[in-house]
């Protein structure tokens, strides 16, 4: 567990470092995700090395964003004022996303 946690944080800090050094418009944790995927793919690290910590983190992922959701209360007025355009845009865009993704696979016969 400790070793796998060390790997996760190691890739996270590597991602943060690259993002910061090159001033990239991509967050460090997203780069960390790409790096760990590439490292697994190239067999630089094994799945067993990282799986214990990553499984736990993913299991409790939803808890970690609760504080951001609570932060919505600060912006309640903005949401209340623009709830209609937000709802319309988000619902139509989601339906479109669902359909475009699905129709490509459906037509390809997969």
């Amino acid at each position: 567990m400790l070793k796998s946690l060390l790997y996760i944080f190691g890739f996270l800090i590597a991602g943060e470092l690259v993002s910061w050094l090159f001033q990239l418009p991509v967050a460090g944790n997203i780069l960390g995700m790409l790096f760990i995927f590439i490292a697994l793919k190239l067999k630089l690290i094994s799945l067993e090395d990282v799986k214990p910590a990553s499984d736990k983190l993913i299991k409790y992922l939803v808890i970690f964003f609760i504080p951001y959701g609570v932060g919505l209360m600060v912006h309640f007025n903005l949401i209340a004022e623009f709830w209609l355009p937000i709802s319309v845009a988000v619902i139509f865009s989601s339906i479109l996303t669902l359909y475009v993704t699905a129709i490509i696979l459906e037509k390809s016969g997969k």
Binding site: L5, F11, N29, G32, L34, F35, K51, S54, L57
Partner: peptide, 8 residues
């Protein structure tokens, strides 16, 4: 770290 875990 959870985003990194998504890579795994």
């Amino acid at each position: 770290p959870s985003v990194v875990a998504l890579g795994v």
